Amino acid sequence: MSIKLFLCSLALTAAAASAVCAHSGGLNSKGCHAGSKPYHCHRAQQEVTPTAATPSNHAHIASSRVSVRDVDTIVVGGPPVRLNGVDGPEVSTYAGKQAREWMVSLLRGETVICKLNGERTHDRMVGVCYIGQRDIGALAISAGHALDCARYSRGRYKHLEQPSAQSRLGRAAYCK
């Protein structure tokens, strides 16, 4: 066994399978090999960290691997996250398809950070997600692709609702 392989194996074992053996190649600001094939990232793929001030089922997750189910549900590095307080149209509707396309465009190439509140709905965790300091739910509502769900947001997004969205999108019964 070569020294390099031995040291790499030792590091992998010591860090409970969390260490990664390094290889050459520069990383961009998101921790990815820009232009190399196969393209892959080393940082921000999925980090789940319980916060000290909250119970252990509350966490932050961050990932640059993000996919969109609809305007109020995104998949962040694996776990689906329901955007707390956001009432979006279903993707089976024209408005829902437009909203999903908008969200895909917004999140393309971005690292998303979600602050989870410990709640779950169906298969999803619930939380508020951000691109940098920008609240994704607030962006969707202010862009007219969703409405405030006051039952869960306590009205924090109400002032962002667009009059055209209020008349065009139906508010879910559970949000009234």
Rank of each mutant, 00 (worst) to 15 (best):
Y152L: 00
G109N: 11
R82W: 12
T73I: 06
A140M: 11
V126T: 11
T111L: 02
C149K: 03
D148N: 15
V66Q: 09
T54I: 02
P79R: 14
R82D: 07
S63A: 04
L107E: 08
A53Q: 15
G85W: 09
G118F: 02
Y152G: 01
G155H: 14
D135W: 06
H122D: 01
P80M: 03
V128S: 01
P55W: 13
R134S: 06
I131S: 00
V112D: 00
R134M: 08
I131V: 04
V75M: 07
A53F: 15
A53D: 12
A95E: 05
Y94C: 02
G109V: 09
L116C: 01
K97V: 11
I74G: 01
S67A: 06
A99T: 10
L116I: 10
A53H: 11
Q133M: 05
L160R: 11
H58L: 06
R151K: 15
Y130P: 00
V128C: 03
T54C: 05
I113C: 07
P80I: 02
S56K: 13
C114H: 00
V86W: 00
A62M: 11
V68P: 01
R151L: 08
V112F: 03
E110K: 09
N57P: 09
A99V: 06
R65I: 11
N117R: 05
I113P: 00
M125L: 05
S64F: 10
K97M: 15
L139M: 10
T51K: 12
D135T: 05
I61F: 02
T73C: 00
L116D: 05
P80Y: 10
G78S: 07
N57R: 12
H122L: 01
G155Q: 10
E119D: 13
A95W: 15
C149L: 06
A95M: 14
G155M: 03
V126W: 10
N117P: 02
E110I: 02
D72A: 08
L83W: 01
P50H: 15
V75I: 14
G137C: 12
G96F: 11
L83N: 00
I131T: 07
Y152T: 01
R151M: 11
I74N: 01
V91Y: 13
T93I: 10
V112K: 03
C149W: 03
V91H: 15
P50T: 13
M103W: 14
G85M: 10
A146H: 02
I61L: 06
S142F: 12
G155K: 08
A52D: 09
H159A: 05
